[in-house]
């Protein structure tokens, strides 16, 4: 059975119910959603710095294609029936989700093995950048 892939880049908050609906599949008994959110506190060189918000930009047509390609690759490695990726663009406040990945498969192992691979690939190759804006007013492009 073939997999269905959906990719969205959005300037609006991520709606979990939309992700869940997009994952719906009567032949899947396992459903896994990963949410990446803006973290307030970061430890750097022994000091704690506080983030106010993140701002995301993308090379939009390529980011959409690259997300599509990596979800396609995941569907070839694991038995996944639904693969959904939503990534925010623009400003994302502390606590809000910047990325959501939803996976549905007949059995749980496929989802649970695929999720870390998908997030690693996303962080390595999808042309999306975040600029961190700290509580002292400074800004910095994040280079992993």
């Amino acid at each position: 059975m073939s997999a269905r892939i959906q990719v969205v880049l959005s300037r609006q908050p991520i709606l979990l119910s939309w992700v869940q609906d997009a994952m719906g599949d009567p032949d899947s008994g396992a459903n896994l959603i990963f949410l990446g959110t803006t973290r307030r506190r970061t430890l750097a060189d022994g000091a704690t710095i506080f983030t106010d918000r993140l701002e995301y930009e993308a090379y939009q047509p390529m980011a959409e294609q690259e997300l599509q390609r990596l979800l396609q690759e995941a569907s070839e490695k694991w038995d996944l029936r639904r693969l959904v990726a939503v990534h925010r663009l623009g400003v994302v406040a502390v606590g809000d989700a910047s990325v959501a990945i939803g996976l549905a498969s007949p059995h749980r192992l496929a989802c649970m093995q695929a999720m870390p691979w998908i997030m690693d690939q996303l962080k390595n190759r999808v042309p999306i950048w975040k600029q961190e804006q700290f509580s002292d007013g400074s800004r910095q492009w994040i280079h992993p």
Binding site: Y59, M62, K130, H143
Partner: peptide, 26 residues
């Protein structure tokens, strides 16, 4: 044209080129 390429890859004259700094999505 929206694909990563190796250093020796030939580039057609009408290609869309982009310089991609280290990405940080997620």
């Amino acid at each position: 044209n929206h694909q990563y390429v190796d250093a020796s890859t030939p580039i057609p004259a009408d290609a869309e080129l982009a310089l991609i700094p280290p990405v940080s999505g997620g």
